[in-house]
Amino acid sequence: MTSASLQPATGPARRTVMAAAGAAGLAAALTACGSGDDSSDTVDTGSGSSGTAGSAGSAQDGGSSAGGAALAQTSDIPEGGGKIFKDQGVVVTQPTAGTFKAFSSKCTHQGCAVGSVANGVIVCPCHNSHFSVEDGSVKQGPATKPLPAAKITVSGEEIKLA
């Protein structure tokens, strides 16, 4: 073996390996960030008032779909609080009696799943960001962006992802 063959890799080959290692580490860190969610198995991502989502307080599209299946009953969502639906990636809230909203359950800080909803706020357990149950806005950081709204419809007692 010559001394040239013992030299460390340099140039594009080494950069490619280092970039791949960095990307893999980032992916592992982001995956771990959202793995500690111990909330219920459902989450709401949109908003709507009793009746149709086209009325005041309607939800915006948050990218979730549930094929029209009922997500919850209105009685399942506490006034001033909400319920997280992990499988659907949404949290549904009822800021005031008869008004239902839905938001992505993915924290805008580092992508963790939110963990609880109470006392008017949605809380991320990873870094303690708080979001408003009324509009998803940031109430306490480190998050700086609101939770994206999701679209729901309320028909009678049923809440569905739109």
Rank of each mutant, 00 (worst) to 15 (best):
residue 10 T to W: 03
residue 13 A to Y: 04
residue 41 D to E: 11
residue 40 S to V: 12
residue 36 G to M: 08
residue 40 S to G: 15
residue 44 D to N: 04
residue 21 A to Y: 01
residue 41 D to F: 12
residue 35 S to R: 12
residue 30 L to T: 06
residue 43 V to E: 01
residue 32 A to P: 00
residue 21 A to R: 11
residue 15 R to G: 01
residue 14 R to T: 03
residue 17 V to M: 08
residue 11 G to W: 01
residue 23 A to K: 07
residue 24 A to T: 14
residue 33 C to M: 07
residue 37 D to S: 15
residue 42 T to Y: 06
residue 10 T to L: 06
residue 31 T to S: 08
residue 38 D to H: 14
residue 45 T to M: 04
residue 40 S to I: 06
residue 12 P to W: 01
residue 15 R to Q: 13
residue 16 T to Q: 08
residue 41 D to S: 14
residue 33 C to T: 12
residue 33 C to E: 11
residue 12 P to E: 04
residue 43 V to I: 10
residue 14 R to M: 08
residue 10 T to H: 06
residue 47 S to H: 03
residue 42 T to V: 15
residue 25 G to R: 04
residue 38 D to K: 14
residue 44 D to C: 04
residue 40 S to L: 09
residue 36 G to T: 13
residue 45 T to C: 07
residue 34 G to W: 00
residue 26 L to D: 05
residue 12 P to T: 08
residue 25 G to V: 11
residue 43 V to M: 07
residue 24 A to L: 14
residue 11 G to Q: 01
residue 17 V to C: 00
residue 40 S to F: 10
residue 46 G to I: 00
residue 10 T to I: 10
residue 13 A to K: 12
residue 31 T to N: 10
residue 31 T to F: 09
residue 19 A to H: 08
residue 35 S to F: 09
residue 22 G to C: 07
residue 29 A to T: 13
residue 17 V to I: 15
residue 35 S to L: 11
residue 21 A to L: 14
residue 43 V to H: 01
residue 29 A to D: 02
residue 14 R to C: 01
residue 21 A to P: 00
residue 20 A to C: 05
residue 22 G to V: 10
residue 25 G to Y: 03
residue 33 C to V: 13
residue 38 D to F: 11
residue 21 A to T: 10
residue 21 A to C: 05
residue 30 L to H: 10
residue 26 L to G: 02
residue 30 L to K: 13
residue 41 D to H: 10
residue 13 A to C: 00
residue 11 G to A: 02
residue 11 G to E: 02
residue 43 V to A: 15
residue 38 D to Q: 15
residue 25 G to K: 07
residue 22 G to K: 08
residue 41 D to Y: 11
residue 23 A to P: 03
residue 45 T to N: 07
residue 45 T to G: 12
residue 32 A to Y: 12
residue 11 G to T: 01
residue 16 T to N: 04
residue 14 R to E: 09
residue 10 T to S: 14
residue 43 V to Q: 01
residue 12 P to D: 07
residue 25 G to D: 02
residue 41 D to W: 13
residue 16 T to R: 14
residue 27 A to M: 13
residue 22 G to F: 10
residue 10 T to D: 06
residue 36 G to Y: 09
residue 47 S to N: 05
residue 20 A to Q: 12
residue 29 A to R: 06
residue 43 V to N: 01
residue 21 A to K: 11
residue 11 G to S: 02
residue 26 L to K: 07
residue 25 G to S: 12
residue 18 M to W: 05
residue 20 A to H: 05
residue 29 A to M: 11
residue 20 A to L: 12
residue 24 A to G: 08
residue 41 D to G: 14
residue 36 G to I: 06
residue 36 G to Q: 12
residue 11 G to K: 01
residue 37 D to A: 13
residue 27 A to P: 02
residue 27 A to I: 14
residue 11 G to M: 03
residue 16 T to S: 10
residue 32 A to M: 09
residue 32 A to R: 09
residue 14 R to H: 06
residue 46 G to W: 00
residue 15 R to Y: 02
residue 24 A to Q: 05
residue 26 L to A: 14
residue 37 D to Y: 04
residue 21 A to G: 08
residue 10 T to P: 00
residue 28 A to S: 11
residue 14 R to W: 04
residue 40 S to D: 14
residue 37 D to K: 04
residue 11 G to D: 02
residue 39 S to A: 15
residue 19 A to K: 13
residue 36 G to H: 12
residue 29 A to H: 03
residue 18 M to P: 00
residue 43 V to F: 10
residue 18 M to C: 01
residue 23 A to S: 11
